[in-house]
Design a protein around this nucleic acid. Structure first.
Lengths: 230, 230
DNA sequence: GGCGAATCGTCGCTTCGGCGACGATTCTTC
DNA sequence: GAAGAATCGTCGCCGAAGCGACGATTCGCC
């Protein structure tokens, strides 16, 4: 089973942010309509694989897609995206092979934009190209900022922040501690220790696959206290 | 004096790669000519400052520009770019304030592209917009890959790689160990220890502000041995 | 040639976090 | 409700690296 190793680097997905960064308007989509067609993928099948020639980019319409890069020993999950996400565009525009593999984890419907049709189309619709450009730069900036924030911060601080991020409107985080550790690129034990500290500080309560936020301000204090400020 | 703190995060510049990522053809520049004009800046003066409204992007023609982000206590140098670099474009396209400050460290000549003129122009010249898009995505990909390579690698490995990167054609690296440490986001002592190891292994020789590569293969072995392979 | 500044080489201490281990809970499924 | 799997809480050990300190070496400048 490779899921253990597979999941181990899920934190990269967090680092690089969501890839659903291309807000296309209905008109845009209409214009793009002639550049490709819808495709359906069963769970477990690939939209494209790392190293393949990039012949198309995809806009995810429904379902979850996992992006990962293969390494000799492990697969690094670099993203997990849902409806709205655009994938494969980097390689497509670079004219290079795909950088990562994209695998459907649920039944997926995606719009396939073929390079041969997309490029001329963007030339005819510069507004879409511009929007694409803006989206790409946004992501670049977000990635840089995320890296800055990630470095030189202790797991303790990262855990506090992650909880704030993931808490639902009831202040609950429904994740196992192992999952949390994966999201942070850390280990279960270290995360557990951080949680213990937070629990003793009265900021949270922990349970089986649940973390309950008790004192939101305390958590925020931990984060902002040491954040590179912004 | 703030230079010490200022320089301390020079390694970010390495992480985020060179910002000179926009290869414009002469024709492109000609077309862009109508969107702005040349400006000259004396050393120490700013092209723009973090937080200012982004009114223009700049293409550096001559001189070195330092990009940094201000924090309550320190300035993080996120890039140091020379001729060919494009700066300020992210904020410009986002329509948001500048993300970082840009300061001339030498006499700088730059071409100033004003937003009000640039945007319509790109709409008229989609090819340029496309090239810009490609360049942005390239950098995004490079940043992601760099982050992957940086994480989970020891200073020892990073030092070996940095030496290979910075060695001139005589196999010499003319940098103080303090500078090396800054480039890696590490400390002088730790770097020194790594160098000692490499010296004992017969891979390099060290001197005053000089490192001489003796056994290139040995260095490469250190790097590739542990690199996430690619 | 000499002096101060910069740089190098090295210790030792400390913190952070990865890793293995083990028992105690909680859930799931039949 | 009982067995087995998943999850949690906690130790202890160890390596990596930050930080301060101090003497030795080298350089630039007068």
């Amino acid at each position: 089973m490779d899921t253990a190793e597979h999941q181990h680097f899920a934190w990269l997905a967090r680092s690089f942010g969501r890839t659903d960064y291309l807000p296309l308007t209905p008109e845009d989509l209409e214009a793009l309509g002639e550049a490709g067609q819808y495709v359906d993928k069963y769970p477990g099948t690939h939209l494209f694989k790392e190293g393949d020639d990039s012949v198309a980019a995809y806009v995810v319409k429904a379902g979850e897609v996992e992006l990962y890069r293969s390494r000799p020993e492990v697969d690094l999950v670099v993203g997990r995206v849902g409806p709205g996400a655009v994938i494969g565009d980097i390689a497509l525009f670079q004219g290079a092979p795909y950088i990562s593999s994209a695998k459907a984890v649920e039944p997926v419907t995606a719009f396939q934009l073929e390079r041969s049709k997309l490029l001329p189309l963007l030339t005819r619709h510069p507004v879409i190209a511009m929007r694409w450009l803006v989206a790409g730069l946004n992501q670049l900036e977000a990635t840089q900022r995320h890296v800055i924030r990630l470095m030189h911060r202790t797991v303790f601080e990262q855990v506090a922040e992650l909880i704030l991020d993931e808490a639902d409107r009831f202040g609950e985080v429904r994740l196992s501690q192992t999952s949390l550790a994966n999201l942070l690129g850390s280990t279960r034990q270290t995360v557990n220790q951080a949680l213990s500290q937070l629990r003793e500080a009265g900021a949270i309560q922990t349970g089986y696959r649940v973390i309950q936020v008790v004192d939101r301000d305390a958590l925020e204090a931990v984060v902002t206290d040491t954040v590179p400020a912004r």
